[in-house]
Design a binder for these strands. Structure first.
Lengths: 339, 339
DNA sequence: CTGAAAGCGCTTACAG
DNA sequence: CTGAAAGCGCTTACAG
């Protein structure tokens, strides 16, 4: 490894000052066009590597944006991240990703690391129990935050998420329309705004249809395929014998369908199942999954844009921006079928 | 946002020098214990945030490690990343993640960004067609690279991956043992070392069993669930009427099983299907998937350790480290069953 | 259009 | 055990 090439190396080689080199490499019109070309060529020839830490120390902008969600391996977040990534790529920002696995501490460590690196902003789906101070820590140190998928009370921060209450009512109404009356709700937790909203939407839809709400028909907890799969046993042994299940998300729904199939029943015929999110996988599940499109790509794109706009100085409106969900009817739901 | 708190702020407040503050905050034994405590408390009270760019500019170590793979949304890489993350977390390193989607250019941009940020090292699953120079770029600038999952010729870099040729022969032999003779191979590409090795392993196993290799039984390409799902049509219309399929990975296998089920056949009975990787999902698929454990967690853990050891100065042996795959027999394979 | 000089916030020999 | 001073590699007014 040769001697490190820096601005001054190029400057000396060409008999110019570092100021000129710096300006030229950043395409400043202050530098004559042919000088600029000569400089750029020399930089390339010498294998010059721009030192962002030095620049960032001076300018106090790093080009780094942090993104932290519950779990990037969850395709729901994966689809959001993909949209964020493509939006940020375009603006030459580097993004640093992290999972918090709903650990407030892990999330705080991440925010601190980001501050230490001089992060320009952060997009986050806050961990369960996140105190307002943790978001303020970021904002107070000049690092704006944008929330996705989950909202927080007592905070004026731009938030992008689906309209969960409305979305789950679409699914519930769809089942009611097919004649189902004993409808279970599988998965989710009351500890997140999303969880509360979805359960409420389910309850409201049932009430509106004049169906009594039986709390025993709720099986809270599952949020993954594995969870849905394991919940199948509990679900199938419910004394009320539900004919349909509204699931927390597509993963739970697919897991549940696997569990139902394992028990010898046919999902979509014997038991109707709805998902939530409309992951890419929903349409190739067997049977293909009736679900609610939740606009992951939209959420990611809008959140990234909002942050970039904010960094560019324009004042994005704070508060909650709801994406309107849409029903996707496929094969996993059908008319009521008595077991 | 108040005035920025820096080392000198604390120094002035306490009537000490920045040198002492700096040492104290990093727990140097050079500073008296009570001075140290006083300093730490004051730092906390003032809301001091360590400026890593400044430190890194001085020390030329950043604590940043880059990880770039084909697609973090692919659970195969997700499982590797999880292992890397937990290993790196322990050593207080920050890791920056990126997808290259097999674009050499995107990968190069990532390596350059990492160099600009002063990355300490990089763990990568090289994009198809990666030139040796791109890895050298990193190494020549003092940023060691570790390869995972895919290897590269003409390079002395530590590489961690499964023994693909051996692994796929396990799956093929398992099917042969069940009486299958017309076995298709679905998915993968000759453009990666992994792809070539797996196809070769399949061919060798057939030959060893005295079964003629029919190139028409290979359907290259698919690497995702969607791909496997779509390949089902082609597979089911093969004039040779294969009774079993060795799939490129679990995703393709699950997609293929979905496609087979959609066509009214029962995977595991009418058609035997093997996967590869043993993703968490394999055991809850319906039917549960017979597959080959590929040691993702091992690969991630070992690669991270190798990098950390290298950074700590110990000389890790270069070259290829193979993880030995193991068979996992479940319900998706069974005795031959004529259609 | 180009240059000289200060400064971003740390750490590290070197003194004492 | 603590301090004074230089320097990491940039960018940015300010001069000319």
């Amino acid at each position: 490894m040769a001697q490190k090439v820096k601005l001054s190396t190029i400057a000396e080689t060409l008999g110019l000052s570092t100021a000129t080199i710096s300006l030229a490499l950043r395409d400043s019109p202050l530098v004559a066009a042919d000088t600029r070309e000569k400089i750029k060529e020399k930089a390339r020839a010498l294998g010059y590597i721009y030192n962002r830490r030095a620049a960032s120390l001076r300018t106090s902008r790093s080009g780094i944006i942090g993104v932290v969600v519950h779990d990037i391996m969850n395709p729901f977040y994966g689809e959001i991240l993909k949209a964020i990534e493509s939006e940020l790529d375009r603006s030459r920002h580097t993004f640093i990703l992290s999972n918090h696995y709903d650990s407030v501490e892990k999330q705080r460590t991440f925010i601190e690391t980001l501050l230490q690196l001089g992060g320009d902003g952060v997009i986050m789906s806050p961990a369960i129990g996140t105190p307002v101070e943790d978001i303020k820590l970021a904002e107070d140190n000049g690092m704006p935050a944008i929330l996705i998928a989950r909202q927080m009370e007592g905070l004026e921060v731009p938030t992008y998420r689906g309209d969960d209450s409305y979305g789950i009512s679409l699914a519930t109404n769809h089942l009611i329309g097919l004649g189902h009356r004993t409808i279970a709700m599988i998965g989710g937790t009351d500890q997140t705004s999303t969880g509360r909203d979805r359960y409420q939407g389910y309850v409201n839809a049932l009430r509106k249809a004049g169906i009594e709400v039986d709390p025993e028909l709720r099986i809270p907890g599952p949020r993954t395929k594995q969870g849905g799969f394991e919940a199948a046993v509990h679900f199938l042994s419910l004394p009320q014998k539900p004919t349909a299940a509204v699931c927390w998300n597509d993963l739970v729904a697919i897991g549940l369908m696997n569990g139902i199939a394992r028990a010898g029943l046919v999902p979509g015929r014997d038991i109707s199942v709805t998902g939530y999110d409309d992951l890419e996988e929903a349409s190739i599940a067997t049977p293909s999954l009736t679900t609610v499109w939740n606009g992951q790509a939209e959420v990611g794109r809008l959140a990234a844009r909002a942050l970039l706009d904010k960094l560019a100085g324009s004042h994005e409106p704070d508060g909650i921006h709801l994406i309107k969900p849409e029903m996707r009817i496929r094969q996993s739901t059908g008319p009521i079928h008595t077991r």
